[in-house]
Simulated assay, not measured.
Amino acid sequence: MAAADDRQHDRETSQSESFVQDLLTRTVGQWDGYIAEYQAERAARGRPITWYEQPGLDKGAFATLVAVHIRAAPAVPEDPEDPRPWTWHAFALGDSCLFHLREGRLITSFPIADGDGFGITPQLIGSRNWDAELIADRASTATGELRADDELLLATDALAAWLLSHPEIASGGSGKQLGKLADLGEETFAEWVQSERDKSRMRNDDVAFIRMRVKTEG
């Protein structure tokens, strides 16, 4: 049993490092090109990079990360009486979160489960960090099964912290709150975020919110 567990751990570690390496190629690998374009655009507008801005560009950017990969069930299940479910596999560095909803209920919050899990020094991925092994070692992974009409929601840390720590959630349930927010249009959602910031109920930080819903053919 121990040997099997070790092999499973090695496979998961290898998959995490492969994911991170691909991520770094598509992000860190493009950073210098992005900076060059930004510098050229600033120069064209007559506002070249100043001496005090340059150290920040040299240092790079840092962000939390949550990513999810959805694997579909086979088109023709081996056992029609017991078909394999769809699954999700998530990877997180820092405190951006994935929420798994089923029938309006929150059944998984990853990698943080409650408002007490948020701090001021989360793990971050840097735009100049090529160490895939180190990043994979510091990251968290999780997996779950998906059914028809399940939802996966991804939220950056300020919004995730609001969802998991705001007292109003106790009355309607965090799943209900998430569903309501996901139904808002982009403009209305932006207005709601600004309102919460103005009331000092949400940190003034970048907010991103992505919704995915499992649908079956019919």
Rank of each mutant, 00 (worst) to 15 (best):
S16T: 04
D114L: 00
A4F: 11
A4Q: 12
A113I: 11
T188Y: 00
E217A: 15
R42N: 11
F62H: 09
W86H: 13
L154H: 05
Q123P: 04
K176L: 06
A75Q: 10
G179N: 13
I49C: 12
F110M: 07
R102I: 10
A92C: 00
E41R: 07
L134H: 13
D205E: 02
H69F: 03
S96V: 10
I35K: 03
L23H: 14
D10A: 15
I135D: 02
V68S: 05
E145T: 06
R71S: 13
R203W: 02
N129P: 06
C97N: 14
T143R: 02
E103Y: 14
G60N: 06
Q15F: 06
I120E: 03
W130E: 15
L124T: 03
I120C: 00
Q123A: 15
E37S: 09
A36D: 07
E17G: 08
A3C: 03
A155L: 02
L101S: 10
D58V: 09
F189P: 14
R47S: 11
D131N: 14
D79V: 04
R128Y: 10
Y34M: 02
G46W: 11
S96P: 14
T141I: 11
P111A: 06
L134D: 12
R45H: 12
A92Y: 04
G179E: 05
G29T: 10
A148W: 02
P85R: 05
A63G: 08
Q8L: 12
I49A: 11
D5C: 08
T141Y: 01
Q123T: 07
K59V: 12
E168M: 15
D5Y: 10
S16H: 09
L24P: 08
D32R: 05
R211G: 13
E12M: 09
E191L: 13
D206L: 00
N129S: 08
D32W: 00
S14Y: 06
A113K: 01
A190N: 08
V76G: 12
H9V: 11
A3F: 02
Q123R: 09
D206H: 03
G33P: 07
A148H: 00
D137G: 05
W31N: 05
G56K: 07
T156I: 02
A67S: 14
V214R: 02
F189C: 13
V193W: 01
G173T: 02
R102K: 12
G119D: 15
G218K: 05
H69G: 06
G179C: 09
A136G: 07
S195C: 04
D95L: 04
E196H: 03
G60W: 04
A161L: 06
P48T: 08
S96D: 03
A132V: 05
K59D: 15
L93V: 15
A3Q: 12
A136V: 02
D95V: 07
I49Q: 12
T188E: 15
L153D: 06
S171H: 06
A73P: 10
F209I: 00
Y52P: 00
I169V: 07
L106E: 15
V20N: 04
D79S: 09
